[in-house]
Amino acid sequence: MQPLLIETNAVLQQSIFVKEVNVKNLNNPLHFHKEYEMVLMTKSNGRRIVGDSIENFTEGDLVIMGPNLPHVMYNDKEYYAPDSELEVSAIVTHFRLDWLRESFINSGEATKLNDLLRDINRGIKIYGKSHKRVVTILNELLLSTGLKRIIHLLNILDLLSETNEYECLSSLGYSNLHNHKDMQRINKIYDYIMNNFTENITLKDAAALANMTIASFCKYFKGRTQKTFTQFVNEVRIGHACKLLYDDHLSISQICFQSGFNNLTNFNRNFKEYTKLNPSDFKKSLRL
């Protein structure tokens, strides 16, 4: 397995590196790196983990992650089928800010920028009119070179520092406690969950996968994700259920079992805990 502290060599040679990605499916492991990363998902859907945040993503998803923040994206299962014709497209930008002089960073003009960068260290998802404006600038950045790339990046940071149309992803108290060995272990657990959450996942099997006792595994997992193993699995299942609720042909009962829950009572309770709505009301809200 490749080191999970990923060295983005292109960024070591230039302050900003941007590329279009076109692949059949997402297969990077959980990783982090020393640079900032901005990802615009132009074609794809699945689940995104950033720090201790678990969310669905769809076409148009736009996020920025700070340095050393663990993150990974998984496609839905159908993307990995041998005969799948689905594709993934994205614009990925890695950038450093060490070229900004300390005198500027500490100046009054940079107060809002510093506030923004503190939020980006937790990962942010951009929405609303700001999303549209950032996407426009990002496409210009993709086609530009040299100093113009820096100007476009500064325009994006300036725009975001003046808006509240973004939300932080990982929790305020989240910190990266992973070392390389941890990253390989937690990545194995994440893969196990994402590949099997619609089935009967057990704490015993997860602990065995990590080569740990159940008690040690529970403490380890909570310390690394800020969630219990059950909470984490249920968040993944509820995220999948939210996606299935867009399908008018599926009943609430069908969605319950297709999301990995073994009874409606447990499904309804967990769904309301995570979304503040019961499944029926959530489904009705999609029609408004």
Rank of each mutant, 00 (worst) to 15 (best):
E273G: 01
I151P: 00
D281P: 00
I16G: 04
L62W: 01
L40F: 09
N68M: 15
E35R: 08
T93V: 14
S280W: 00
R149Q: 15
L245W: 02
D83F: 13
I124G: 02
L116T: 09
D281S: 13
L286F: 08
I64V: 10
I137R: 03
A110D: 10
P82S: 07
I156G: 00
F95C: 03
S107A: 14
S280L: 11
I238E: 08
F232L: 06
F95Y: 09
I151L: 12
N121R: 11
G146R: 10
Y166N: 09
V11K: 06
H180R: 12
T145M: 04
E165H: 05
Q14Y: 10
V236S: 03
I151Q: 12
V92Y: 01
V50P: 00
V236R: 01
S130M: 02
Y274W: 09
V233E: 04
D182G: 04
N187L: 09
H131K: 15
T163W: 05
S107T: 11
P67V: 09
L113C: 04
G123T: 05
K284M: 12
R269L: 12
R224A: 06
D158M: 08
T228C: 05
E162Y: 11
N45G: 00
N22W: 08
V72K: 06
G260N: 10
D182F: 05
F217C: 10
V135T: 15
A206R: 03
M65C: 13
K125W: 07
I124F: 06
S15T: 08
Y80L: 12
F267K: 07
N211E: 15
K284T: 13
L12F: 12
F271Y: 08
G239W: 01
P3E: 13
A215Q: 09
E7W: 03
L203E: 14
L244S: 07
E78S: 15
V236L: 03
F257C: 05
Y74W: 13
G66F: 01
T111P: 00
V134Y: 10
L147D: 12
A110W: 07
T58K: 12
V233F: 03
V18S: 12
L30Y: 02
L277I: 03
G60C: 13
K125A: 15
Q258K: 14
L100D: 00
N270H: 10
S161H: 07
L245T: 06
L157Q: 09
N278T: 12
N139E: 11
T42G: 03
I105E: 07
M38G: 09
A206G: 05
G128S: 11
R48P: 00
D115S: 13
K222G: 01
D158L: 10
T230K: 15
L264S: 03
S103M: 06
N22S: 14
F32V: 00
M183D: 06
K284L: 15
